[in-house]
């Protein structure tokens, strides 16, 4: 009997969905907009995260050594830094490499090149470029270097570090840290806000669709149909709205991400949205379909409840 009842409810829900064509279409379209917003929030979250990651990777601090700093001591510092848990990478640039890079940078600057050729020796010292795992950790790394005298002083006690550019970069690093923290918070707030608004709009659309059926619900009540039996087909209809909208949304995302992918990549976000969509399809599928089914079924369930009170 339970199976028969379920079959009747499912059939009735499907028939109502099909025969109420225009109402179903309107509900599906509104819900599609909601699901597109939810999917866009997923994609823009990934975009934001990747962009912040790219920016984070561009942040580093450079330790400039005095010209006569012994290489083995510099390499020792590099080894010590690499052992720190907060350090992601330490690159050693010899004074010759630094000079070559300087020349390459100023190849068109005749005055600088002339001044450089007047010098007998290489004026540039070796460098260590340090990348931290998190930009907030640069302060600690700079502090480690300036306080660890035995490591950074020559045997005669003179410092071998000329300067650490953390002080110059500090403002930029702090600004990036602040932007990253607030972008995450803002992104989350925007996501919650838009999701709520679009869910409310969908909920009201389905409520209106069921409002049209309020007299039918009264008739069903009068022929003795149970609340469950009346509500069931509407919930099935809601599920069908959700499934249809999710299918449309997933299909639309394919060409849209295909088009946006290279554009985003060229803007230096470090991510191709199309690639992201394909690689995370299973996850996006479950979020979009799950949201569609949940919003559809819940909206219908709650909307019918109101008209069952006779």
């Amino acid at each position: 009997m339970l199976l028969t009842k379920f079959k009747r409810i499912a059939r009735s829900g499907w028939v109502n969905f099909w025969r109420n064509g225009s109402v179903s279409l309107a509900s599906v379209l509104v819900m599609t907009v909601t699901l597109i917003i939810i999917a866009s929030l997923l994609l823009s979250g990934a975009l934001l995260s990747s962009t912040l990651n790219t920016i984070r990777q561009k942040v580093d601090i450079t330790v400039y050594f005095v010209t006569n700093a012994p290489d083995d001591q510099i390499l020792n510092i590099q080894k010590n830094l690499q052992a720190l848990p907060e350090v992601a990478a330490v690159d050693y640039i010899s004074s010759d490499d630094a000079l070559a890079a300087f020349k390459a940078r100023h190849i068109n600057d005749a005055h600088t090149m002339t001044a450089l050729s007047e010098l007998d020796t290489n004026p540039l010292g070796s460098e260590l470029t340090i990348k931290a795992k998190d930009p907030t950790q640069y302060a600690g790394i700079a502090q480690y270097l300036s306080s660890n005298n035995s490591l950074v002083n020559a045997p005669d006690g003179t410092p071998i570090i000329d300067k650490i550019n953390y002080a110059q970069n500090k403002d930029a690093i702090d600004a990036i840290n602040r932007i990253m923290a607030s972008s995450r918070k803002l992104g989350l707030a925007v996501a919650i806000f838009f999701s709520l608004i679009s869910i409310l709009i969908t909920f009201n659309t389905i409520r209106l669709a069921i409002y049209i059926s309020r007299e039918e619900i009264a008739v069903m009540r009068l022929v003795g149909a149970s609340g469950q039996y009346i509500r069931g087909p509407f919930v099935i209809e809601g599920l069908l709205y959700g499934a249809a909208s999710a299918a449309i949304t997933l299909m639309l995302l394919y060409p849209v991400t295909l088009w946006l992918g290279p554009i985003g990549e060229n803007l230096g976000t470090g991510i191709n949205l199309f690639g992201y969509y394909l690689n995370h399809f299973v996850w996006i599928f479950f979020v979009v379909v799950g949201s569609g089914l949940a919003i559809g079924a819940l909206s219908s369930y709650l909307a019918v409840k109101r008209y069952l009170k006779i």
Partner: peptide
């Protein structure tokens, strides 16, 4: 048929 289904009658 709906009134009969509501009353739990068989197919």
């Amino acid at each position: 048929a709906f009134a009969m289904e509501a009353a739990g009658r068989t197919e």
